[in-house]
């Protein structure tokens, strides 16, 4: 069942097209990664999903309801964490958490306490005195302490220390185990790689790739480092081999997914001493797309 359905969504600000006909499908119970460089349109898309911005064209639905018209209805069942949390300076963190949880509906005091403890937050301090990381924790606690079916997170871990990032990842895993859905926008690729079942890559207002990491990996190259007893002739000329370099650990190169079998068969004739094959990381994937689409122009 689809939790989020987006069809041909377009958003223009004056002459500037922020989103140019994007499609998204997020299914129940999955953790969906939404990745892309700065200014690609991630936050714009999320704000449209939240009914805060009005789409210029196309349709966006959450739980089968229109995100603009049924915003209140939808918001009862979702939790949102922005990437840049700004809080009311003269209220304490505890007060803000209560407010945010309360406005969503039911309040769960025990869960509030649990998450405050897990995220190690002092709720009695005024928000004006919180660091960026602590403000982020307030928003995260408010989100996890409420009973949501869908979590929309916009770069939620910015400013968190590695320990807290780990707590966050545990929270996501728990939420997922409960069959809930997570829509995670991020550019921390290791995080997305660890957490997400499927990802969409957005660039300049367009979705350029969607699929599970497994699927996407087929689109890119495998990193290979090999040491052989005898030197391998004319490897660089083989189809599908790129970036051939001599390193201390041996020959390092990349192979297109389709040619991987042929290349391995070829090099195995030269007495392999050691062979490392690493699947492409999300980072490679991302850079791959980024370069292909002409990354230079946005540098």
């Amino acid at each position: 069942m689809s939790i989020i359905t987006v069809r041909n969504l377009t958003k223009r600000f004056g002459n500037f097209t922020a989103l140019n006909g994007i499609d998204l499908d997020v299914k129940q119970g999955e953790v969906f990664g939404f990745i892309g460089p700065n200014g690609a349109g991630k936050s714009t898309a999320i704000r449209i999903l939240l009914g805060i911005l009005k789409a210029t064209g196309g349709e966006a639905k959450i739980f089968g309801k229109d995100v603009w018209h049924d915003a209140v209805e939808i918001h009862r069942r979702i939790a949102y964490v922005p990437g840049d949390v700004n809080l009311w300076p003269n209220l304490t963190g505890g007060e803000v958490i209560d407010l945010l949880v309360r406005l969503r509906g039911a309040s769960h005091r025990s869960r509030r306490e649990e998450f405050i403890e897990r995220f190690d937050l002092d709720p009695t301090k005024k928000c004006a005195t919180y660091s960026k990381g602590n403000r982020q924790k307030v928003a995260l606690i408010a989100a996890f302490a409420s009973d949501a079916e869908l979590y929309i997170l916009d770069e939620p871990t910015s400013g968190l220390d590695p320990l807290m990032e780990r707590v966050f990842q545990e929270c996501i895993a728990e939420v997922k185990a409960q069959g809930k859905t997570v829509f995670l926008s991020s550019h921390i690729l290791s995080e997305v790689e660890r957490l997400c079942d499927r990802v969409s890559i957005i660039r300049q207002g367009k979705i350029i790739e969607t699929g599970s990491l497994q699927e996407l990996r087929h689109l890119t190259r495998t990193n290979v480092v090999v040491q052989t007893a005898r030197s391998i002739p004319s490897l660089a000329e083989m189809e599908g081999v790129h970036d051939l370099q001599e390193t201390e650990r041996g020959l390092s190169f990349q192979v297109d997914a389709e040619q991987l079998g042929d290349v391995i068969a070829y090099i195995s004739q030269y007495d392999i001493i050691s062979l490392e094959c690493a699947p492409p990381t999300l980072e490679d994937l991302f850079l791959h797309h980024y370069e292909e689409a002409g990354g230079a122009e946005s540098c």
């Binding site: 704000r47 939240l50 009914g51 209140v72 918001h75 922005p82 406005l103 969503r104 509906g105």
Partner: peptide, 8 residues
């Protein structure tokens, strides 16, 4: 923005 993401 945070307030508007709630059922408000």
């Amino acid at each position: 923005e945070m307030i508007r993401s709630l059922p408000v």
